[in-house]
Design a protein around this nucleic acid. Structure first.
Lengths: 343, 343
DNA sequence: TTCACTAATGATTGCGCAATCATGTGGCGC
DNA sequence: GCGCCACATGATTGCGCAATCATTAGTGAA
């Protein structure tokens, strides 16, 4: 008894512990622990006494201590590039909700599309010994990969589909999205393409797919604008205005997100460019407003909530040790082009 | 040694501990601890040995144990109603970013505008003994209030300004916003008002302020539509369509968010209703797109990021014990009406 | 050289809980 | 009435770390 022996309680009362509850209930501490965690192991009488004592003392278990003893934190680390994008917000919501129902809590990290930032977050988060980890994308720093492998914790990488996952994988192929969009526009008879794309890794993948689809048909984009994240409406509008001011002539604009597409369409309307007759515009994400712009926006639908749900479900199974199948899981949720009026 | 004595290491290697590092470094565990936490207390030579050993073993401190020993978790609980609303997303980003810079991590809870959900989240989160708590709004269940007071942890309530805060308060008056909007529209000569508002508490406050402003001028809204959260574009558009179908005649629509306003404007355009001549539309939030809709959207600007920043800063000060001023902090960040073309 | 003093390091203990092992306590059959 | 067994309960210990106290090495002045 060397520390915390300030003779009378110093100022504010300390939180009651299991022992305090036990004293009030007139049972041993371990009985309290069992009454709370494995109620079926305890007699009705004891359980009633404990419940009353918990109520009376306002006891809340200290999970720091519990986690240390059990070596399980019931904590899941979640790292996303941003929450400003509604589609990631949906994933975050689905994940926290699903995990919470299973008794896990979510430690959120926002990496801002930076690998270094992700690494720093990861290092800090791993110190809390999460039971599971959900990451966005497949790209991580070498140090992060090493750390993650050493942690021997279930991991789900989301929002992408590619080679060499750390563990499980839930997403879709961005390259294929871009390719499909390229083919779609070609089929619609478009021939002169501009691209307005965010500069994050997945948007680049889509852009690469798009460009490749064009190449296969002997076409190339007349202009490509890569914009710094976040991909805001205003940046999309401005980027397209700049392209027009530079004298670019195109009959289709590929956009890496609906938000950018919305900006592009607004600028087009502002300049009296008829969509879709003179110009096709296609977005990505199928956000809420896509079906309601004028004209309505053709877009690529992907399901952020579903990604979160599946990722969380898989993680829960892995953490509970139910599915000890060692083969890595790979879930392709695909995508679909929603044809509307803009393209 | 009663537990964990599976004779050889069972399967996967356990994470190295302070003791492992100490053995490798050839010093005592406490020296390792000091080298990491109070490097100035340790000789250069010892620190070098420790650093090398940490590197070699891939040691990551176990914060569960550290927090238990120090009685500080460096964890902050954050509860927001949603992250789907970009303006809350900004607050979340600002908070996590600011806290992280100060060495705190954020435990995110999404309450979905439900007091019960908030209470459940809070109970779970308090078990992790956060050093600080950031809540949205002033309304909490009675049990939550009791728990929070007992926790004796610094708290910041955000996004509102009202009576009887638990501790500190960072926000603005929603009632005043509604009132200001009402007066603004009256000044613009509008006389027949409709309202499309979300059914969350703060939107209701704004609506009340709006209605009161009208009453003072002898007016009342001809129609009010309260929509379930989330306040999506499509719901706003549909609500306004319904109002029109019911034969409501109005020359101004008050909307509790820009997203709803965007929907209302789209429906108006769709029906050929001229904005602003036949109809004024005003939103709330001044989201990114507000300056770029056709016509541009008059809105109320509030700064979600600033709210997060100020809340986090205050909390950091309170947690570090720097500002032990017992008087509760109350920061009014105000708002401003951004006049554009729609009203 | 010796002593007082500081800086650096180490040994021990407890944070609050749950896992393990040990001990009751009652019910049932014979 | 005795012994066995199932069940309920309790005592002890360790999870990994840092706070406290104790000790050693190192420094300079008298």
């Amino acid at each position: 008894m060397s520390q915390n022996r300030q003779d009378p309680p110093p100022g504010r009362a300390k939180a009651p512990t299991l022992i305090d509850v036990a004293k009030v209930a007139g049972v041993s501490p371990i009985t309290v622990s069992r009454a709370l965690n494995q109620p079926e192991m305890v007699s009705d009488k004891a359980r009633a006494k404990v419940t009353a004592a918990v109520e009376k003392t306002g006891y809340l278990p200290n999970m720091l201590a519990g986690s240390l003893a059990t070596q399980t934190s019931r904590l899941v680390a979640l790292i996303v590039p941003t929450v400003a994008n509604p589609i990631f917000a949906e994933t975050v919501r689905a994940i926290t909700e699903t995990l919470e129902r299973a008794g896990y809590q979510t430690l959120l990290g926002i990496s801002g599309y930076s690998d270094q930032q992700e690494q720093d977050l990861l290092e800090a988060i791993l110190c809390r010994r999460p039971d599971g980890i959900i990451l966005t994308g497949l790209q991580h720093s070498e140090i992060s990969r090493t750390r993650l492998k050493a942690a021997a914790t279930p991991i789900v990488e989301t929002w992408d589909l590619g080679e060499d996952p750390l563990d499980a994988l839930v997403g879709f192929s961005h390259y294929d999205v871009g390719r499909a969009v390229g083919r779609y526009l070609l089929e619609k008879g478009r021939r002169r393409f501009a691209a307005v794309s965010a500069d994050d890794r997945r948007a680049d993948s889509r852009l690469a797919g798009f460009t490749d689809a064009l190449s296969e048909a002997g076409a190339t984009p007349v202009a490509t604008r890569r914009l710094a994240t976040p991909a805001k409406f205003s940046r999309g509008r401005q980027a397209f205005a700049e392209l027009l001011d530079e004298g670019i002539e195109c009959d289709a604009v590929y956009c890496s997100s609906d938000t950018l597409a919305h900006g592009v369409m607004t600028e087009a309307r502002y300049r009296g460019i008829d969509i879709p007759h003179r110009l096709a515009v296609i977005g990505f994400g199928d956000l809420d407003f896509a079906a309601h712009t004028l004209p309505t926006l053709t877009s690529v639908q992907i399901n952020g909530a579903e990604i979160g749900l599946r990722a969380a479900r898989h993680l829960i199974a892995a953490m509970s040790g139910t599915s000890t199948s060692p083969d890595p899981v790979r879930i392709d949720l695909g995508f679909s082009i929603i044809e509307r009026d803009s393209a």
